[in-house]
Structure formats: structure tokens, C-alpha cells
Design a binder for these strands. Sequence first.
DNA 1: GATTTTAAGTCTCAAAAAGAGACTAGCACT
DNA 2: AGTGCTAGTCTCTTTTTGAGACTTAAAATC
Lengths: 136, 136
Amino acid sequence: MKTGAARVPTLDGQECDMSTWDAGNCPVRDVMNQIAGKWSTLLLQALAERPYRFGELRRLVPDISQRMLTQTLRDLQRDGYIDRQVFPTKPPSVEYSMTDLGRSLFEPLSKVLTWATDNHAAVRAARVKFDETELA
Amino acid sequence: MKTGAARVPTLDGQECDMSTWDAGNCPVRDVMNQIAGKWSTLLLQALAERPYRFGELRRLVPDISQRMLTQTLRDLQRDGYIDRQVFPTKPPSVEYSMTDLGRSLFEPLSKVLTWATDNHAAVRAARVKFDETELA
DNA sequence: GATTTTAAGTCTCAAAAAGAGACTAGCACT
DNA sequence: AGTGCTAGTCTCTTTTTGAGACTTAAAATC
């Protein structure tokens, strides 16, 4: 067993320094912890398509609370994935749109979303099987 | 404004039925809500590399609690991404390894993780800028 | 002209989830 | 006899999330 820094290869031939998996200096965790929120990918998927206003997003995702919509949008904005533009209409309206950074993230991310759609049945089947055998 | 089912195109030319974005029948949400957990991608990344035992994973991710490690592993197993194999040694040891389904998920997912590493600096810069201008 | 509606939130309180850390079992080693 | 190893579970506290009332100011409705 190695005791030094554990450089381990990942599937696609990259290397990953396992010693940096602690919260402070792990880029993967720092970035993923934000887009891995319950609503983030959903909102990114919507905004990847076209800009949306606050109320539109709320109607689009019926079961998000205004509180979480506000907060998730602000977090995505903070990380530079989306833009927030206020129009001084009355009542004022706010439009959210994707930035270039957001678009560049969404490219690989959309592949995962596609996978999710394509393999939904397999995942559900695995769940049924697990629940059958475990709770027998 | 359309009042019917909103079929909207996504970036990569697919279509997504926005009317199915409610929790019950949205495959994206059903699948993503699991792998979007705080620890899921991290554990998948580890297990994509090679099988690991419970204690190894705990040491690899220093700040995960045993409670969350157990639970996340069980959730990943339930969804069919990883396998749990008990060896009747003394004390008994348990090895977690990736399934074919898990590997097929990790293929697109690893692209996102790579993106995270590559664009970590840009995200951090966006945060700094946001915090400066918002909390001025 | 009083009432309701709209927009994009904020605020408060309740519920759910996550984290910290003590505790368990059986065996091996000292 | 005492200590440590394994892979957990159990309980308690803290953090997140959710549900829903409240806000502000103008515009549409009655």
C-alpha cells in the first residue's frame, strides 16, 4: 500500500490526485457541489434553451418554491453560469439567460441529462430489484 | 404564448417536453436527484477507477461521515450503479465496485468532472466578481 | 375609485436532511 | 485482559429545504 500522494487513473485515462479530495482544494467538489443541487441542472436545462423570466421559470418547474428558485438562480449567477438582467418596466421584470461559461458547462452536462432520459428505465428496474431483494 | 404542451429544443438539437417537468414523470429529475447528491459523484469517481472497500472510501473522502457514506453507497447501489459484495473474512469486509450501468453513466459524467477541473479558475473568478459587485 | 392582479422577490416557521460522534459485534493480536 | 480492526447503526444537533404569508407599486378590472 502506498502511503504517499495517491495518483490514481480514472476511466478516461486522466489522473486524479486523491490527496486533494478534501473539501478545501478539490475543484471537482467546489464546482459540482453547486450544480449538483436539486434544482440547478433543471434550471440550466431551461436556460440553455432560451432566456426565461422569473415567473416563467416558476411556472415551468411547478414544484419549486419561490425561495429555492431565487436562491438557486442567485447561486448559478454567482458561479458565472447565468446572467440576471433587470428591466425597469412596471412592475419590473427580470430576465435570466445563460452565459458563455454556462453554455460551455452545459455541453458536457447535457450528455448526462440525455443519459438520464435514455437509461431511466434501467435505473427504475434496478430500484425495483433492490427493493425486492433487500426488504424480502 | 402557447398554452399547449411546450416542446422546446435543447442545445444539442434534442427536444424536451417541458410539461413533464413535474417531479413524478421527469426522468431527468428522477435520475439526477440521486447522482446530484453532495457525495455521489465523488464516490462514483473513486469507484470508476477501481473497487474500494468501505474503510478505504472513508479515508479517501476524509470529511464524509460514516452515516452519509453508508447511505450514499446504498442509494447508488439501489439505482444500480454500484455493486456491494461482502467477504466473510473476520472481521467481514465489504467491497464496492461499479456495475456496467454505473460505468455507462460515468462516461458522460466524467466529461463534466473534467470540465469542473478545467474551469475551476473561471468559476472562482466569477464568484469573486459577484461578491464584489453585489456586496458593494 | 376601490379592488384585484402582476412581478419578483423577502420573511417566518415547520419539516426534512445532513453532520458529529458515541456505540455495537466478533475476532485477532499482544 | 486490553486494544484494535471491520462495517456499520443510533442518537442528537445543526443546516437545508419547503410552504406559504407578506411587500411594493403600478395597471387592469369592476
